[in-house]
């Protein structure tokens, strides 16, 4: 196999992703695990861009990095936790990893290049082939939002 720029980019992304996954497992405090999970999701978005799934990379950035990690950060800040010194110093590793990811995302993406299969008609494809599933997901999202609000607001809900 030729060791071209694309393969080198994938190897770099995979290496960074594996290091971040190990850092998630090795971190003692939950807040550090969430920070490394944030970087892991960012690297996964870079991998999606490399696989020509730009829409999914954007969805990953918006939903996971913008929503779920913020939610987890809030939950971890509310919970009481025992303070222990972390094994990995995130103030040194985090900027380096973020710089590697950003340089890779900017350098390897071919701007204006259309992928092998077109994502421009993805909305029409979803509506035509997966309309019922889309409705189910919409109802599930409403039910999840209402039930989460109810559980948080009512203290006497049995679990």
């Amino acid at each position: 196999m030729e060791l071209g720029l694309e393969v080198l980019g994938f190897l770099l992304t995979a290496l960074v992703m594996i290091i971040e996954g190990i850092a998630v497992v090795m971190s003692r405090r939950p807040m550090h695990s969430i920070l490394f999970l944030f970087l892991l999701l960012l690297t996964a978005a870079a991998l999606f861009i490399e696989l020509d799934a730009v829409v999914l990379a954007l969805a990953e950035l918006l939903i996971y990095n913008g929503g779920i990690t913020i939610l987890l950060t809030l939950a971890a800040s509310i919970e009481p936790e025992e303070i222990r010194a972390p094994r990995i110093k995130p103030d040194i590793i985090l900027p380096l990893v973020a710089a590697v990811i950003l340089v890779f995302m900017i350098s390897t993406y071919k701007f204006g290049n259309v992928s092998n299969f077109s994502y421009t008609s993805l909305g029409t494809f979803i509506l035509s082939g997966y309309g019922i599933l889309l409705l189910v997901v919409m109802v599930m999202s409403i039910a999840a939002a209402l039930s989460a609000t109810y559980m948080i607001s009512k203290e006497d809900v049995g679990i």
């Binding site: 779920i68 939610l71 999202s141």
Partner: peptide
């Protein structure tokens, strides 16, 4: 994302 929202709500209630 929906599943995570529900688990976090249950976790906060439990904690």
């Amino acid at each position: 994302a929906l599943e995570t929202t529900l688990i976090v709500a249950l976790l906060l209630l439990y904690s």
